[in-house]
Simulated scan of single mutants.
Amino acid sequence: METTSTFLSTWDQYMYVGSVMCIALGVLILLYHEFKVFQIKDLKEKYDYVNLNEIKYFWYSMMAFIAAVVIYANTIATEKIAREGTRWFFVRIFVTAGFAVIAYFVFYSLVRIYYPRQLEKRLARLRNTPRISPAGNAMRKLSESEEQHHLDESQRADGVIHSIDYDVWVDEATGFKKIEKYPAYQHAEECSECGYFTMSIAREEIEKAPTFGEPGVLLKHYKCSYCGHREQHEITVAKLSANAV
């Protein structure tokens, strides 16, 4: 009995330490990510980093927090185990392991479904924050109609055929221009069926190729990774121009 009590007491101490370490790890993961974001000065580079990494690091931290809860749960009812037998020790391990599996899938779904909405808000702020030119002036983001005059033929084609957006920023005092490229397929959109930000471009196909006399038609196929809903949008492709490369 005394040996069992000593073992359980030591076990609880290790579990307390382990849970604290997991919490600390989760916090450190989030702080590391935010520090990396802070280090990046260029807003476009910061946008790309956040877009590619934020959900990943957030999920890593969530796994650390889940592990902390599961480890701490292995200290519950220690007195009952010492009093009624070690079989309850293994029951506790089994129950907490089951909880860990359930929590993993529940939180994985929650992160995948709900967090993209928050991520898109942060990305929108980064994308629309005024850029600063080398001269130190605040730059103006051109409208879609204005930016067409600053894009070359291949960039305009990318915007239609390859689901790529271009933002053009201009320093009106010096004429300095900065063009930023944003692949649309990297972003989730709100699904019209389930309402979650889990709809993205699955593939594209040219239904009708453009000619010098007629515009073409591009089909963009969207699929929701949550509910499986599919949509397709028709995009008109401009006629070929005589000076196209």
Results as ranks from 00 to 15, higher is better:
residue 53 N to A: 04
residue 151 L to F: 03
residue 81 I to H: 04
residue 223 K to P: 03
residue 94 F to S: 10
residue 76 I to S: 15
residue 120 E to V: 07
residue 95 V to T: 09
residue 227 C to A: 10
residue 203 R to A: 10
residue 85 G to I: 02
residue 177 K to C: 09
residue 85 G to C: 01
residue 65 F to N: 02
residue 203 R to Y: 12
residue 14 Y to S: 06
residue 148 Q to V: 09
residue 91 V to W: 14
residue 166 Y to Q: 00
residue 207 E to A: 12
residue 71 I to W: 03
residue 169 W to L: 00
residue 166 Y to P: 02
residue 175 G to F: 03
residue 7 F to L: 05
residue 182 Y to W: 03
residue 52 L to C: 05
residue 114 Y to E: 09
residue 219 L to R: 14
residue 189 E to Q: 10
residue 116 P to R: 01
residue 73 A to D: 09
residue 8 L to W: 08
residue 157 A to C: 06
residue 196 Y to P: 11
residue 75 T to Y: 07
residue 208 K to P: 05
residue 87 R to M: 12
residue 232 Q to Y: 06
residue 47 Y to K: 04
residue 199 M to F: 14
residue 140 R to N: 06
residue 105 F to G: 00
residue 211 T to A: 01
residue 201 I to F: 01
residue 157 A to T: 12
residue 204 E to W: 06
residue 209 A to R: 13
residue 41 K to V: 04
residue 202 A to K: 15
residue 110 L to K: 14
residue 96 T to M: 15
residue 222 Y to L: 08
residue 167 D to K: 06
residue 10 T to S: 12
residue 181 K to V: 08
residue 172 E to C: 04
residue 194 C to H: 09
residue 156 R to T: 04
residue 157 A to L: 06
residue 38 F to M: 08
residue 80 K to H: 09
residue 98 G to Q: 02
residue 74 N to A: 05
residue 105 F to C: 00
residue 78 T to N: 11
residue 234 E to D: 09
residue 104 Y to Q: 05
residue 61 S to V: 00
residue 94 F to M: 11
residue 172 E to F: 04
residue 175 G to R: 07
residue 73 A to Q: 09
residue 95 V to L: 10
residue 96 T to L: 02
residue 30 L to D: 13
residue 204 E to H: 15
residue 159 G to C: 05
residue 232 Q to R: 11
residue 192 S to Q: 08
residue 162 H to L: 13
residue 241 S to H: 13
residue 232 Q to T: 12
residue 99 F to M: 04
residue 2 E to D: 15
residue 85 G to D: 02
residue 208 K to E: 15
residue 70 V to F: 05
residue 149 H to W: 08
residue 157 A to K: 07
residue 87 R to T: 14
residue 224 C to I: 03
residue 232 Q to C: 05
residue 100 A to T: 01
residue 234 E to K: 10
residue 37 V to R: 12
residue 184 A to C: 10
residue 46 K to D: 05
residue 194 C to W: 13
residue 134 P to Q: 04
residue 91 V to A: 11
residue 207 E to N: 10
residue 38 F to P: 01
residue 26 G to Q: 07
residue 234 E to T: 11
residue 193 E to G: 07
residue 174 T to K: 08
residue 34 E to H: 08
residue 59 W to L: 12
residue 194 C to N: 08
residue 147 E to H: 02
residue 213 G to R: 14
residue 196 Y to T: 09
residue 87 R to P: 06
residue 30 L to A: 08
residue 33 H to N: 08
residue 26 G to M: 04
residue 210 P to V: 02
residue 162 H to G: 02
residue 237 V to W: 01
residue 150 H to V: 01
residue 151 L to H: 07
residue 43 L to I: 04
